[in-house]
């Protein structure tokens, strides 16, 4: 097996790194590369993570994504009603998508345009308000562009740092750890909690990320390249967790 890792595989590693240090919590990555990254974290450096099958079961092991009939090792039952108990207790780290996100991490996937007659009806608020105010949140954005990284979101479904700060004590459980994209890894580790460019994937320049972002990013003193997978991590991704290569559909070769 070659040790050369694709962009998609770097994204999987960057997602896995979001869950580093989380210990025994529900890691709830939503989407293809988030699922691969989450399961990779558990199969390697975060073995105590608890994960769902995408529905009502908590399952063990590094079950492959995109293989519907792969066997499940069921650890526990977690219907939607129990999921809210977990969210509101804070023992969860969710990774969601975003149609729009701003410099403070305010996120929108509800709709674009007017409240009464949106230009584009999207998902609705789903669980974003509760997720962001009650447990740790990260975002996965497979199409880093100025259409997504906007100066102001049309609707705030997921709460950003500026709004959480205004809540005072009521915002104490809010936290956005990372934003992983097809180009870069971003965080909010700045004095004023503005979004910061932390790492770029190999082959991506800082200028490219800046140009694809519709607001002024803070930029780390040294923007590192995102970490490459180890040989064992590559094996886990390619042979165990994503044997059908669905990651390469989400982030194609460049």
């Amino acid at each position: 097996m070659g040790s050369y890792a694709t962009r998609a595989e770097h994204c999987c590693i960057a997602v896995a790194e979001c869950f580093r240090g989380d210990g025994e919590i529900l890691a709830n990555p939503i989407g293809t590369i988030p699922m691969i990254g989450g399961r990779l974290a558990r199969a390697s450096f975060e073995p105590d993570l608890v994960m769902t099958d995408g529905e009502a079961l908590l399952i063990a092991g590094a079950r492959p994504v995109g293989v519907d009939d792969a066997p499940k090792i069921v650890e526990a039952w977690n219907p939607y009603r129990s999921m809210f108990d977990l969210v509101w207790s804070g023992r969860r780290h969710v990774m969601m998508g975003a149609s729009q996100i701003d410099v403070h991490g305010n996120q929108n996937f509800a709709f674009v345009g007017d409240w009464e007659r949106p230009k584009a009806q999207l998902l609705g608020f789903r669980g974003a308000p509760g997720n962001t105010i009650q447990n740790t949140t990260s975002y996965w954005i497979p199409n880093h562009s100025a259409r997504v990284f906007v100066p102001q979101v049309d609707v705030v479904s997921g709460v950003g740092y500026d709004r959480a700060a205004q809540l005072g004590a009521a915002g104490r459980f809010h936290g956005i750890r990372r934003v992983v994209t097809n180009l870069a890894v971003l965080d909010f580790e700045t004095d004023d909690r503005r979004m910061r460019l932390r790492e770029v994937h190999p082959g991506v320049s800082v200028e490219e990320v800046v140009a694809a972002t519709g607001f002024e990013l803070a930029i780390a003193d040294e923007v590192a390249e995102s970490r490459a997978p180890s040989g064992e991590e590559l094996r886990l991704i390619r042979e165990v967790i994503d044997p059908t290569g669905s990651r390469e559909q989400e982030v194609p070769h460049t």
Binding site: R81, A110, R117, Q121, F125
Partner: peptide, 25 residues
């Protein structure tokens, strides 16, 4: 995305109360 619901929203033929999934519960 439910396509008929999208049509209704984008035509402005229905109003909404937007909720979080857990707030709904």
């Amino acid at each position: 995305l439910e396509p008929h619901f999208r049509n209704a929203r984008q035509a402005g033929t229905v109003t909404t109360l937007e909720l979080d999934e857990g707030m709904f519960l």
